[in-house]
Design a protein around this nucleic acid. Structure first.
Ligand SMILES: [Mn+2]
Ligand SMILES: [Mn+2]
Ligand SMILES: [Zn+2]
Ligand SMILES: [Zn+2]
Lengths: 170, 170
DNA sequence: AAATACAATGACATCCACTTTCATCAAAAA
DNA sequence: TTTTTGATGAAAGTGGATGTCATTGTATTT
C-alpha cells in the first residue's frame, strides 16, 4: 500500500534559534504576562519576574525544582511555594503549558504550539527534548477514528538515550 | 513522497476475545506467577491470588484503587498496602507492566506486548483503552534517529472522548 | 508624598498517592 | 508438629504539591 506522507519537520529547539529571535520571544512572553496581570488586577512582583526570566531563558520543558535551583544559585531568597504558584500562574496566563511524564513531577513548557506534544526523554540524563512531526498525527487520528474516539490532545513520549549521553558513554 | 505503510492493526481488547481464550490466558499468567514465587522462595498467599484474579479478570489497564474497590466489595479484609505490594510484585515477575498517565496514579497492565504502548484516555469517564498500530512506530523511530536519539520505549497517549461517552451525551 | 487597600510572599502545616515499619500471622520447610 | 521466614495490615513516614496565615510589598487613592 502506498500513501502520501509529509517529509519530517523536526525542530531542535534553541539550536536553530538566533540570539535576536530568543530575545524577541522572551520580550513578547513577558509582555503577554504583564498584560494578563493588569487585566486580572494581579501584581507584578520581583519574584514573578525572576521566575519568568529563568523559565524563558532555559527554553526547554522544565519543572519547579530545576527553576528553584537556578534561582537560588543566582539570586537569593525565593520560596519554593512561590515558584510552584508562579508556574501555575504562567499556565493560567496562557504562556505556559502544564504536562507530565511518568515521574511525580509537574512539568511546564512555553505554550503556543498546538495540541500535539512530542517528547524525547533521555533515561540517562533526564533531559526532555521536543520534536514536531505532523505526519504521525494523521495516523493517530485515523486509528482513533476507527475506534470511535474523538481526539482532543495527542502526546508522544519516546524514552531512550540522547545523542549527548551516547557520545559520552560510548 | 510515497512510502510503504502497513495497514492499521487495531485490537479492541476483550471485545475480540472468547471466553476460552480469556480463561487460558488467565491460567497461563497464574502459572508464570507461581513459578516466579517458587524460584524466588516467596509465598503464595490468599491475598496475592485474589489480587491476581481481580487484575486478570478486569483485563484492561488499571490501578491500585480500582482493584482495591473490587476486592473489598467481594472479599473484604485486604489492606491497601498489600494491593500496592502485589502489583509491584506482578511487575517484578514480568506478568504486569507499570506505567503512568498524567494523573498521580501508578497504573498496571498485563505485560508481554512489546516496547510500544498506545493508549486512548477518555477525558469523560477516565477509561483507558489500548490500541496497536505498528506503522506509526516507523515514523517515530525515524524522527528520533534524525535527532541522534536511541529509542528504548515508545508511548502514545491520545486524550479525548470515547465512543460510549459520545453516544451517551450526544 | 502619605495613607490605604489588598494581593503576594514564605515558613509551616496539610494533602494525597505511595512506601516503610513492625508486631503479628501464616505458608513452606524441617 | 515445630520451626523458619516471608506476608500482612494498621499506622507512621515520604515527597511533590497545595493551603494557611501573619507579614511584606505593590499599586492605587487621597
Ligand atoms: Mn509541547
Ligand atoms: Mn501497553
Ligand atoms: Zn541524555
Ligand atoms: Zn468515556
Amino acid at each position: 500500500m502506498k500513501v502520501d506522507v509529509i517529509v519530517f519537520e523536526c525542530r531542535e529547539g534553541s539550536l536553530l534559534q538566533t540570539e535576536a529571535v530568543v530575545t524577541q520571544k522572551k520580550q513578547k512572553v513577558k509582555e503577554q504576562f504583564h498584560l494578563f496581570l493588569t487585566k486580572k488586577r494581579l501584581k507584578a512582583t520581583l519574584q514573578r519576574n525572576l521566575i519568568l526570566d529563568a523559565f524563558v531563558d532555559l527554553d526547554r520543558p522544565t519543572h519547579m525544582d530545576e527553576l528553584y535551583l537556578v534561582l537560588r544559585s543566582k539570586h537569593s531568597h525565593i520560596g519554593h511555594a512561590t515558584v510552584y504558584r508562579a508556574l501555575r500562574l504562567f499556565a493560567a496566563a496562557g504562556i505556559a503549558r502544564e504536562f507530565s511524564l511518568g515521574d511525580g513531577l509537574t512539568r511546564y513548557e512555553l505554550a503556543g504550539h498546538g495540541k500535539r506534544h512530542d517528547y524525547l526523554v533521555c533515561s540517562d540524563c533526564g533531559t526532555v527534548t521536543e520534536f514536531d512531526n505532523s505526519s504521525i498525527e494523521q495516523r493517530q487520528l485515523a486509528v482513533a477514528r476507527s475506534m470511535g474516539f474523538t481526539v482532543e490532545a495527542l502526546k508522544i513520549e519516546l524514552r531512550g538515550v540522547c545523542s549527548r549521553c551516547l557520545t559520552q558513554s560510548g
